[in-house]
Simulated scan of single mutants.
Amino acid sequence: MIEWQWATLDTLSPHAVHAMYALRQQVFVLEQTCLYPDIDAADLTAHHLLGWQGTTLAAYARVLPAGTKYSEPAMGRVATLAPYRGTGLGKALVAQGIARAEHHYPGTGLRISAQQYLIHFYQHFGFVTEGEPYDEDGIAHIEMRLAPV
């Protein structure tokens, strides 16, 4: 069973911060070979969603406040560790992220910069594409927006 934690960076334990950065490094830098500054200033104002399976951080996403990247809040760094993929954890992670963003930022909607191959995955939640695909760190991405509830 996954235990969800929703917190700002300054309220996370050192262990949780280390696990968060280790998961992001594993997925984005090592597996997807994206050499980019993953640790950025947005982490300082983001709400971090951590999905714990016991003491293992199995899933992670962050939600940025409106005005950080877009005019509305944005969800990003959505990732699950390889052993948990295909289990439904990714869907649970995104559903949790949407619910918590709607609760924390009511009536604003949510934007993501999705890897293009995941369009159908995010459409399942009601996200719609906006604009044309673009390259980000060697991976095709597309902007997607979820309308306010």
Rank of each mutant, 00 (worst) to 15 (best):
G131M: 10
V29F: 05
R77T: 04
D38W: 02
L30A: 08
R111T: 11
E130C: 10
P65N: 07
T33I: 07
T129K: 11
A59E: 01
L81R: 11
A41Q: 12
S13P: 03
A74M: 13
L64M: 07
Q5D: 03
T33V: 13
Q96W: 06
T55Y: 07
A22T: 11
E3R: 08
G107N: 14
P133E: 07
D10Y: 07
A61Q: 06
L57K: 02
A101S: 15
Y134P: 08
A66Q: 02
R24I: 04
E130S: 15
G51T: 02
L23C: 03
I98G: 06
Q25H: 12
A58E: 02
L110F: 09
A79G: 03
H48I: 03
E3K: 07
Y122C: 08
I39F: 12
H48F: 10
A7T: 04
Y70R: 11
G90D: 10
L23E: 02
L118K: 02
T68Y: 02
L44V: 02
G88K: 09
T68S: 09
A95P: 02
A19T: 00
T108I: 03
R85G: 08
A99Y: 06
I119Y: 02
E3P: 00
R62Y: 05
V27A: 03
L50V: 03
I119T: 10
L110P: 05
M20L: 14
L49F: 06
I119M: 01
T45K: 06
V128M: 14
Y60Q: 03
L64I: 05
G51A: 02
P73D: 09
Y105R: 02
H120D: 15
M1C: 06
I112F: 06
I119P: 00
Y105D: 04
A22Q: 10
M20V: 01
T33K: 15
A92S: 11
R77Q: 12
V78T: 08
I142Q: 09
L44Y: 05
H120T: 12
M1G: 11
H120Y: 09
L81A: 15
V63P: 01
E132L: 13
A101G: 01
S113L: 09
T8N: 09
A95D: 10
Y117I: 06
R111A: 15
T55W: 04
